[in-house]
Design a protein around this nucleic acid. Structure first.
Length: 489
RNA sequence: GGCCCCAUCGUCUAGAGGCCUAGGACACCACCCUCUCAAGGUGGAGACACGGGUUCGAAUCCCGUUGGGGCUGCCA
């Protein structure tokens, strides 16, 4: 049944979809997913994807947020075909609609303040506007809001391809405001006017909009003479946090920009987002944008809220990172460092030294910023061994001192190439009847600063003899300072 | 409170009445590989919220309960 509705609409008019974000904060992942689904749907059906900025509330909007939406979408690779339209610049369109509705008797003026309404309805069982001004016959003038005269009886039906037929008794819908007392339209009105003028065929948006949809339907019908069919609605499940509440810009860290700065790949983000609320039906999980377009279908969209799982995103990002050629990986690192990273990155990704280690880094980093962390030992001007690592791998190891002293000795003369360094240290380990892994812990910590990281010998090779010896010396000295009593006997 | 939506492993999901002793992925645990860490390999633990129907047969359909969520603004 659901697919018939889609088919019908597609058959009778061109597919035109839109996203209508309001610039009240960073573009968040929920908005990105909505944009992605709309974009896929438009592409799939040779339709048009419209971007419309819902900035009717001047007090809450900021220009930088508008730019943020555009750059986030560009980064993700989902570009709009039309727009961006700005509602703040379309005032006359709303005015025309308002006049028409007024003269046809669909509206009435209201001079109640919020406080007055609250006062009156306090005792009532049902909060919401009490239609106080509905029959007062107030003139339409500045300082008075305009409310829609919702029919007392009957049912307003929302046809939703994902949810089916959702019915709202008109008696449960209060006389909502369509224009503020300062004359500005409210989003329901503006949205309906725009959807009509822009010939939107499908409204694909988050489920939180479902309760206001009957108001839009009522307005649509009041404005139309029947020639313009309602768009097909599709309300997507909301994205929730670990407490299963709708993710919010205030509570949760969800800005697309954040993920970009952290070194996530847009293709990984897009892929992960696609799977939050949609699945192809078989087991496949990896999709390029092109494959998504070919496969995405509203009938496969889920009904229940989805948790944005950063762990899984991290996994996806690692997979995409490892799938890159080493050359591409290096290039992405460079681009991230210059364009996306929030602060100056200490790693010189363009250097030959990084190129030498890049394959090893690529295998281990789940994000580009992790890649930077992995080679920090090589590029940081102020190298220091992590305290915790120092205690664990050096202070607590009774053999650490002699290992460091001996390795210092050996590395003074041997050629500084990974295989030879390995042979040298393997020899050292054998002499002591220790496993290689066991002796490398203090060495790694002294030279690279941490107990875990990139493979040791390649790292030392790139670090170079001078700096390696310097760091070994520093560790030996630090050890004697911290535990002066424990000398080798 | 009212209206509306939702309900399969911890998480994302497959499942459109028999193919389900419920499949996959992330995370988790064990082992293997191994110079640490990753990656990779093998194995493991882990779910149909509950109660009634309908049916020869229900995770799948219906009703109710419970639970969660959204909306309830002269925000979007």
């Amino acid at each position: 049944m659901a697919s018939e509705v889609i088919g019908e609409a597609i058959g009778t008019r061109p597919v035109r979809v839109r996203i209508a974000p309001s610039p009240t904060g960073y573009f968040h992942v929920g908005g990105a997913r909505t944009a992605l689904y709309n974009w896929c749907f438009a592409r799939r059906h040779n339709g048009v994807f419209v971007l419309r900025i819902e900035d009717t509330d001047a007090e809450r909007n900021k220009e930088e947020w508008v730019d943020g939406i555009g750059s986030a979408m560009a980064w993700l690779g989902i570009e709009w075909d039309e727009g961006p339209y700005r509602q703040s610049r379309r005032g006359e369109h709303y005015q025309v609609a308002l006049d028409e509705l007024w003269s046809n008797g669909y509206l009435y003026a209201c001079d109640c303040t919020r406080e007055m309404v609250l006062e009156r309805t306090k005792a009532n069982a049902t909060p919401g506007y009490d239609s106080f001004c509905r029959d007062r016959g107030l003139e339409h003038q500045l300082g008075r809001a305009l409310r829609f005269r919702v029919p007392r009886d009957g049912v307003t039906v929302v046809e939703d391809v994902i949810r089916g037929e959702v019915r709202f008794a008109n008696s449960t819908i209060d006389d909502f405001v369509v224009a503020k007392s300062n004359g500005n339209p409210l989003f329901v009105l503006a949205g309906v006017v725009d959807d009509r003028e822009m010939r939107i065929s499908h409204v694909i948006r988050a489920e939180e909009h479902l309760p206001t949809t009957p108001k839009a339907v009522l307005l649509w019908e009041a404005l139309g003479t029947g020639e313009l069919p309602l768009p097909v609605y599709a309300h997507l499940p909301v994205l929730v946090n670990e407490k299963r509440q709708k993710i919010s810009k205030r509570r949760d860290r969800v800005a697309v920009e954040d993920y970009r700065e952290q070194g996530f790949l847009p293709e990984a983000m897009v892929n992960y987002l696609a799977l939050l609320g949609w699945s192809p039906g078989d087991g496949r999980e990896f999709f390029s944008l092109e494959e998504l377009v070919a496969e995405f279908d509203l009938s496969n969209v889920n009904h229940s809220p989805a948790f944005f799982d950063e762990q899984k995103l991290l996994h996806f990002n690692g997979v995409y990172l490892r799938a890159l050629t080493v050359g591409d990986f290096i290039e992405r690192c460079c681009r991230w460092a210059t364009e996306d990273a929030p602060t100056k990155v200490v790693a010189d990704f363009a250097s030959a030294r990084f190129a030498r280690l890049a394959p090893l880094v690529q295998e281990r980093a789940a994000t580009l910023s992790e890649a930077a962390d992995l080679v920090e030992f090589l590029f940081t001007p102020d190298f220091a061994v992590e305290d915790e690592s120092f205690v664990k791998a050096i202070e607590r190891d009774p053999d650490a001192h002699s290992i460091l002293v001996e390795v210092r000795e050996r590395l003074q003369s041997c050629a500084f190439e990974a295989p030879l360094l390995k042979a040298e240290i393997l020899q050292l380990a054998d002499d002591r009847g220790r496993k290689l892994g066991k002796v490398q812990a203090p060495i790694r910590t002294a030279a690279l600063g941490r107990t875990v990281g990139l493979p040791l010998f390649e790292s030392l090779e790139v670090l170079g003899r001078a700096r390696t010896l310097e760091r070994l010396d520093a560790a030996i000295e630090r050890l004697s300072e911290s535990k002066p009593a424990v000398e080798d006997v």
